[in-house]
């Protein structure tokens, strides 16, 4: 098990959210969308310019910018 940032995940790579270390409006938005520790995520794709990133969470797709995704740490196998 190792922890990495979403920015460094490859397309189709899966993992489990370990922590979301941001407060304020961004933190709230992320949590409202179900990005809480213990949730499984998968990188579904990236925009043509690599940013934003599309994530698969709880059965739906959401997008966020890389600098927003930086606050999310994901545990991955291997």
């Amino acid at each position: 098990m190792m922890k990495i940032n979403i920015r460094n995940m490859k397309v189709d790579q899966e993992g489990t959210i370990a922590s979301v270390k941001v407060g304020g409006e961004l933190g709230r938005r992320l949590r409202d969308m179900g990005l809480v520790p213990g949730t499984a995520v998968k990188v579904q794709g990236r925009a043509p310019l690599y940013d934003p990133v599309a994530l698969r969470v709880k059965g739906f797709t959401l997008t966020l910018r890389n600098n927003e995704a930086d606050h999310i740490e994901v545990e991955i196998d291997g």
Binding site: R29, M33, T61, L62
Partner: peptide, 8 residues
């Protein structure tokens, strides 16, 4: 900027 967090 307002968070981009958006549903597709």
């Amino acid at each position: 900027s307002t968070p981009f967090v958006m549903e597709l």
